[in-house]
Amino acid sequence: MVMILGVDPVLVLGGTVAVALFGMLAGLVFMGIERKFAARMQARIGPPIRQPFRDVAKLLSKDSIVPENAIPCLFNMAPVLALASSIVILLYIPLGGFLPVLAGYGDLILVMYLLTVPALALVAGGFASGSPYATVGSQREMVTMMSYELPLAIAVIAIAWRLAAAGIADPFSLATIAGTASGITIWSVVGPLGIIGCVLLLIVLTWVTPAELSRVPCDTPEAETELCGGLLVEYSGRNLALFYLAQGVKTVAMAALAVALFLPWNISWFVALSPNAALAADFAFFLLKILAVIFFSVSVIRVGMARFRITHVVSIYWGYLGGLGLLGLVFMVLDAYIGGGGVL
């Protein structure tokens, strides 16, 4: 077997292609289902589930228009970058019973950095569009990014720290956190105080998701009624289709991250199955968990409230959610030292 830098290129390449295909496909399917969810809650029928596929097919068949004031190379590169980076995130996240393709080559911290890359690509594309709406949208996206970074980081670090405190090796590796191999998860480590902490952090992550994905109430960077689509206002055709796909992949990635952190259980831990059946069952269960995450942190939130002002985004994410996250962290610390649940 040929190994380059300790990696089997065939396996990695094959895995990457498979994950990329899965990400785009699942992204579109989940977006279709999500639209159905939202429609149902608004007493509508909503578009058929295959609508996102039709949208992408239609966009792909159209011309990409580059505005006169735009910087063409940046403008055209941003969507590619957004899609590629979204897919890369998926390579680090365990998908059901499958270990991450790049397991062992990056951890949670890397994923957190990677999560900002699609947003940065959007910002770059927005600034490169040369439209006042897109410029304002880009500024807002940057502010949003800085706002949700703190609560997200707290949530992630609290979990990893608690695992480390429990004496688990390699706590920042997503495979460890999800307990894919060991079956040990955060919930089996913490005591009662830690459970409160975990629930608080789960709430924080639920609220970070819409900001990360630019959905209502945090769709300020796109804000159809304010900025006509903000960042994306000048995008059309193939470029827009790529952003659309990236959005789908990012949705899956965010949900998969939430699943890995907080809902890591696999069916095969509880039921004895043959290895192949276990993989299939775990994967199906994983998809179901993703759907549940999308339902609560995307659909319900987005139909249940009005859009925030950008100033609200900052104050709510830094103030309330940051505070809530810190409280969760405190609970985790208490749990580790006095709660008795830990194995310090």
Binding site: M41, Q42, A43, R44, V216, P217, D219, A223, E224, T225, V303, G304, M305, A306, R307
Partner: peptide, 9 residues
């Protein structure tokens, strides 16, 4: 306000 649910309602 970006609150489409109330719009439909």
């Amino acid at each position: 306000l970006g609150f489409d649910t109330l719009f439909f309602l």
